[in-house]
Nucleic acid binder design. Structure first.
Lengths: 198, 198
DNA sequence: CGGATCGTTGATCAACTTCAACGGTCGTGG
DNA sequence: CCACGACCGTTGAAGTTGATCAACGATCCG
């Protein structure tokens, strides 16, 4: 649906414009490389074993990435809602098989950029290379902050911190997924939320 | 000492050559941007509150990055030995004050690249931009793997995994530092190592 | 040689998990 | 449009992992 795609692409245009200055021609060339994909809740974009062929910009809705631990429980590693990116980044970058699932937890619309196209863009234009460099830097810095939180804070502190930083998300995300993202069980998160922890 | 610097720079030259193909001229231009710094054990390169002005390539020795938690205990976030990089990456990239200490745990030699110089290099040459993009990508992918380990494994499994991946490091690092890196206390790591855990 | 630093060990304790049972809600097929 | 099952969150009891505390031993370095 074209109206749909226009709407999504406008969001992505805004996203890029807020990060770096591109000429109108460059901006449109970059945007033209993305393909829209519409997802139903529970729809899976990527499974372990597959190589992540695309990176996904979330135009609307929400997705999460998770792994299965040895007991078969899923452990959420990453969330993405509007204006965020998601993929098995390690797989996308190294071309190794993914270890994560990527799944929509709401009906969603994503804009996908595939690896080969991204490579060509980066090669063709210094400014594009800069954009992806900045995205990787932001991602690395973000993850490092997460590691610090995970190592230094208690379960309650991690939840409080998340609530403070993402007030709207803390209600919007499935609770079982948020719990494992924060490194605890769904039962314990439920107790924290209801002040039932000793 | 020039002989020293030659030796360090050779290591870094190797490092870059293994990653991307540069012309000899480009390689030397890049290497010339680094300054050697000699560190004694316990010497501190960066403290919280300062902006990280440089990224450090470890030519010899070993460093770690750590934060102080609310009880004043240090928690190791990152290690770097020969051929690795270290800094408060978040601070370096965002120009915000650091939250971490960066400290040598052995006598070390690092090659430092300061932020402004790096910016100029990246602007001046598409190939340099590519190098730093690749470094950021590797860093992001690495950290994501660490988050997965932290969330899905028990203390003993995390230690076993570390031992397997970095057999030499698991003996070389100060044990109290390795313990917090793996998200446990030094006492508990000691018990794991000596099979004293229940 | 002497003090500081680092690792070790055991006893106790706290944080968090596991397990099991239940209630509410949502969406899907009849 | 209703009914039923699946899914999700909640609660409490019991269990486990790993932290804390304290004391001691070893080692390193000045």
């Amino acid at each position: 649906m074209t109206a749909n795609r226009d709407h999504s692409v406008n969001a992505l245009r805004q996203h890029f414009q807020s990060k770096i200055s591109l000429t109108p021609t460059e901006t449109e060339e970059l945007l033209a490389a993305f393909r829209e994909k519409i997802l139903k809740k529970k729809q899976i974009l990527l499974k372990p074993g597959q190589v992540a062929e695309v990176r996904n910009y979330v135009a609307s809705g929400g997705l999460r990435a998770y792994v299965l631990d040895k007991d078969g429980n899923d452990q959420t590693i990453q969330f993405a809602v509007e204006d965020w990116w998601i993929s098995d980044y390690n797989s996308y970058v190294t071309r190794q098989p993914a270890t994560m699932f990527v799944e929509a937890f709401e009906d969603s619309i994503v804009l996908q950029l595939d690896y080969e196209t991204e490579m060509k863009l980066k090669k063709s234009n210094h400014a594009f290379e800069t954009i992806f460099r900045m995205m990787a830097e932001r991602s690395a810095a973000f993850q490092q902050r997460r590691i610090i939180l995970a190592i230094t804070q208690s379960a309650q502190e991690r939840y409080a911190e998340f609530q403070k930083r993402y007030p709207s998300l803390s209600h919007r995300l499935p609770q079982y997924a948020l719990a494992t993202y924060l490194g605890m069980t769904k039962e314990f998160l439920s107790k924290i939320r209801n002040n039932r922890v000793k």
